[in-house]
């Protein structure tokens, strides 16, 4: 009986994925927590095509099997992402844990995924039949539900290479290390010629998936800072009404209070 495969190339990995009933894994930091007997595993942590980081015109490409430690030391990875992933767990987990695994886990608490939501990142999904590129928010269908076919693998995360330099980020964990997010917030701001071109706000660990309300963001798009300031109360009010949060290890009220504080602070930080 075979209980595991090790893929040395992407083609090999996809071939196995297409023909076998396997659970892919890279760092194994999520999968190791519960031992589920009877499963067959496919190790993709050493597949060269999944271990690359490079930049092109539009995107920073981060391979699904790139570890957090590798990314922290890579000059091409944007600062916002680095800030978030350097708060993941502790060195041992960061040495093994990967971007693909963080997505594959399907959790709204995944710290790198929050940044992908806040930056409108895309994912490249591949199978033996071909590939598709999908917006990260489309990839998450619900709590622990992903738009990932049985024969597919996550190959890359595509982060925008420009326009995410101005941001606000906060992680609230139960302690300073080795702590899963209880609330997390990432906001990205951009303006051109005095007009707001981007004001993305994403909230992690407060609902089944990362939350982002693009229609509320639109209230401030195209506005000057002064105009936006006028709309500040309405904007915050809209969020406050929309955000229906679940309780977890902390209460829904706490989560809501913190989210609103961090959102307000994000506006203030950029003069709004």
């Amino acid at each position: 009986m075979v209980d595991g495969f090790i893929a040395n190339s992407l083609a090999e990995a996809l071939e196995i994925r297409a023909t076998q009933d396997v659970v892919p894994y890279a760092g194994g930091t999520d999968l190791m927590v519960v031992n589920r007997p009877g499963l067959t595993y496919l190790f993709i942590g050493k597949v060269p095509e999944l271990k690359r980081v490079f930049v092109d015109e539009q995107y920073v490409h981060i391979g699904a099997a790139v570890t957090f430690t590798e990314a922290i030391h890579n000059p091409d990875v944007p600062t916002l992402m680095k800030e978030a992933i350097s708060r993941i767990a502790a060195p041992a987990i960061r040495n093994a844990g990967t971007f693909g695994g963080n997505l594959g886990n399907g959790s709204a608490k995944a710290d790198s995924v929050l940044i992908e939501f806040a930056t409108d990142a895309k994912l490249r999904l591949v199978s033996a039949k071909g590939e598709r590129i999908i917006d990260v928010d489309k990839f998450y269908l619900g709590r622990k539900k992903l738009d990932l076919a049985k024969d597919e693998l996550i190959a890359e995360i595509l982060l925008p290479s420009k326009g995410i330099e101005n941001y606000a980020y906060t992680k609230v964990g139960g302690r300073n290390a080795l702590a899963i997010s209880r609330v997390s917030f990432a906001g990205v701001f951009a303006s051109e010629e005095g007009k707001i071109t981007n004001i993305a706000a994403a909230f992690g660990a407060v609902a089944d998936t990362v939350l982002r309300y693009k229609d509320i963001e639109e209230m401030l798009l195209g506005k000057t800072i002064a105009e936006a300031r006028e709309l500040r109360q309405d904007y915050l009010q809209a969020y406050s009404e929309r955000m229906v949060l679940t309780r977890g290890r902390v209460s829904a009220e706490y989560r809501k209070g913190v989210c609103m504080n961090l959102l307000g602070d994000f506006l203030t930080k950029f003069g709004i």
Partner: peptide, 9 residues
């Protein structure tokens, strides 16, 4: 679920 402090705290 029951967190104890680490040196980072």
């Amino acid at each position: 679920d029951y967190l104890i402090p680490t040196t980072k705290d």
